[in-house]
Amino acid sequence: MPLPAKAFQRWLHEVAPDTSIADVARASGVKRTTLAQQLVRGKVAETTVVGISRAFHINPVAALGSFDTYRDLGKPPVPPTPQELVSQIATADLLHAIIARSEQDGDSATAAGPPALSPPPHATSVKNWVDAIDDGELRHRVSAATGVAPQNYSAQLTANRLAPELAVATSRAAGVGPASGLVATGLVTEAEAGWPPGARQAALDRLTDGELTALAGDRLQALGKSLRRQEHDQRQTEQIWKNLG
């Protein structure tokens, strides 16, 4: 949910009291015309607040927490669960970890460690995060709390996106840290959300070989289904154009 322009202007006056809108736009990388349009419409995007916060060396999570809509983010950070951490590891990194472990088993003297984990978000980070914290009723609770239809919520997950207010509402409904969903969507970084350095790698290292292999297998199976669906849709589209031509 975009932030009220009046509340944004009050916040901006506090963080950059002697800075013009043009200078704010220049420093933050937000286009001046975009910022002006948002102010005229009375709704400022969360990404704008994040960009300005970074430009003025303010934690974006804390900045968003100063607005009523995101007041949960103003509280001390809550550490992510192990399941959340693992959900934010890309499938390719899981496969690299499997290979690295097999090499270590074969020749520990010459085996190299796995490469550094790629940062969130990854191709299925949003859906994986929701699945990691879902007790079976999470989607229904989020729908009831926000008024967003379950099918619309699922459509966002399938597209690997989630509006910031829905991400925070999902965290609230699941009882996890309010900023975790913003990491999964890529709005903020792990460090900005207060995740401990190296937490994802540590969570990966704690997985047994069986757990790691099963997780990678589940990810690959889901990827296969998605690719087959895309291929099917592509064939149907090509057939339609062929019939029309």
Rank of each mutant, 00 (worst) to 15 (best):
P4K: 03
A5V: 05
A7M: 01
W11V: 14
L12F: 03
H13E: 14
E14A: 15
E14G: 01
A16D: 06
V24C: 12
A25N: 02
R26C: 04
G29Y: 14
V30T: 07
T33F: 02
T34S: 14
R41K: 02
G42E: 09
V44E: 01
A45P: 03
V50G: 11
S53D: 06
S53W: 08
F56M: 08
H57G: 01
A63Y: 03
G65A: 07
G65Q: 07
G65K: 01
D68H: 13
T69Y: 00
R71N: 00
P77T: 02
V78H: 15
P79A: 08
T81H: 05
P82I: 08
E84Y: 14
V86F: 07
S87M: 12
I89V: 02
L95Y: 07
H96A: 15
D105N: 09
S108W: 03
A109F: 13
A112C: 12
G113I: 09
T124C: 09
N128H: 09
D131A: 10
A132F: 03
G136P: 04
L138K: 00
R139K: 12
Y153R: 13
S154F: 01
L162T: 04
L166C: 11
A169L: 00
S171I: 13
R172L: 10
G175R: 00
G175Q: 03
S180L: 06
L182N: 04
A184L: 11
A184H: 00
A184N: 07
A193S: 03
G194P: 05
G194I: 08
G198L: 05
A203I: 02
T208Y: 04
G210C: 02
E211S: 12
L220Y: 00
L223G: 11
H232T: 15
Q236S: 15
Q239A: 15
N243V: 11
